[in-house]
Structure formats: C-alpha cells, structure tokens
C-alpha cells in the first residue's frame, strides 16, 4: 500500500503535502488542514459504524497534532530534529552561551522590577516593550535554527532549539504577568 497519504503514519509534512523545511508554508498547511478535516472529522461519521468512527477520531487527532506541531516554532523545530533522529530531551541541560544567559537573566530582572515597582498602566506599557524585545529575539533564533538545519548542522540547530524554548517560556511569563495586572486593574 502506498504510504504517502496514510494519515496515521505519514510525517506531519507529508500529511499537509509540504516539503520538510523550517520555513514551512503555513498558508498551505492551513488549507490542507481544513481539507483533511472536512473529509475526516468525526462529524462526517456521526452515523457510521464503530470502526469508522474510531478511525476518524484517531486520524483527526493526528491531523490536529500535526497542525499544532507545525505552527508552533518550538514544536516544529523539535519535531524536525526528531525526524533526523536527534535526541531532543533537553530538560536537564543548560545552554552554554554566556551572553544569551545574561540576556535572559536581565529579562527576568526587568520583569521582577515591573512587578514590584510600577503602577498598573505603566507596568503594562513596560511589559509590552519587553514582549516586543523577546519577539525580536525569537525571530532571530528561528532564522538561526533554519540556517543550521538546512546545512545539516544538527548540533547547532539543537542549541538554537534550546534558546527558542527559553524565549518561549519568557514570552509566556510576560503574558501571565500582564494578565494578572490587567485583571487587577479591572476589579
């Protein structure tokens, strides 16, 4: 049997009919996602027998996972390294790039300062500024990952994945903090 479009076994890139690349065409991915959902969603099998229902659920679960993976910069990078057989369990490792670590430390310090010293409105503006800075860093890290991966420098790519993870965590923390401040302002 052909495996090119075997939903349960094809790679996420094959699923959406796009080449394996970090700079993936997200518009095409979304289009293909909608198409697959329109054909395979459990709603299309609401009156079908159990086997088809279950397969439809498993297939769309996989399609959803594929979309989530390819549209998230960190998950996409990790998945691509996994495709190359790279161990991406980074939990117990720290990055060695001293300059990057310094940057992260400063970022956390700025957040702490904002948390304790600013009035609501002013704090939100400052956080917004920080968030923009992090976004710039993410963009850069993504470019580095893409370049390293396409040159098959997988160790370097792995290092950039680790940095992307740091940055994504920072983004989330900034979001959580601004959410808290916004909520406090409303009450």
């Amino acid at each position: 049997m052909s495996t090119t479009h075997d939903i349960l076994t094809a790679s996420f890139f094959e699923l959406f009919d796009v080449p394996v690349s970090y700079d993936v065409d997200l518009t095409k991915v979304q289009q293909c996602y909608r198409f697959l959902q329109s054909q395979l969603h459990p709603d299309k099998f609401a009156s079908a027998e159990a086997t088809q229902k279950r397969l439809s659920m498993q297939m769309t679960s996989r399609i959803n996972e594929a979309l989530q993976t390819l549209t998230d910069p960190v998950l996409r990078a990790a998945y691509m390294l996994e495709l190359k057989g790279v161990d991406i369990n980074l939990d117990n490792e720290t990055t060695v790039d001293a300059e990057f670590l310094m940057q992260q430390l400063e970022l956390r310090e700025s957040m702490e300062t904002i948390k304790h010293n600013q009035d609501g409105e002013g704090a939100l503006d400052k956080l917004d500024e920080l968030s923009q800075q992090v976004k710039q860093q993410v963009k850069k890290a993504m470019q580095h990952f893409s370049a390293a991966y396409s040159k098959m420098q997988l160790d370097t790519a792995r290092e950039w994945l680790r940095k992307l993870q740091f940055l994504q965590k920072a983004e989330k923390e900034i979001d959580v903090l601004s959410a808290q401040i916004e909520d406090d302002l409303m009450i």
Partner: peptide
C-alpha cells in the same frame, strides 16, 4: 475489516485530493 476500512479512508482522501484544488479550502 478494520485495516480495510482505514485503507479505504486513506485512498478516498488521495482520490479527492487529486480531483479538487486544495485552494477551495483557503481562508
């Protein structure tokens, strides 16, 4: 029939994909 059903679903997708432009599902 489980494997058969799965193959039919997959083959159906391939078939429909060839017959339609995916652009119909664009945003």
């Amino acid at each position: 029939c489980e494997a058969y059903v799965a193959r039919r679903m997959n083959s159906n997708i391939r078939h429909v994909m060839q017959g339609h432009s995916i652009n119909e599902y664009s945003e």
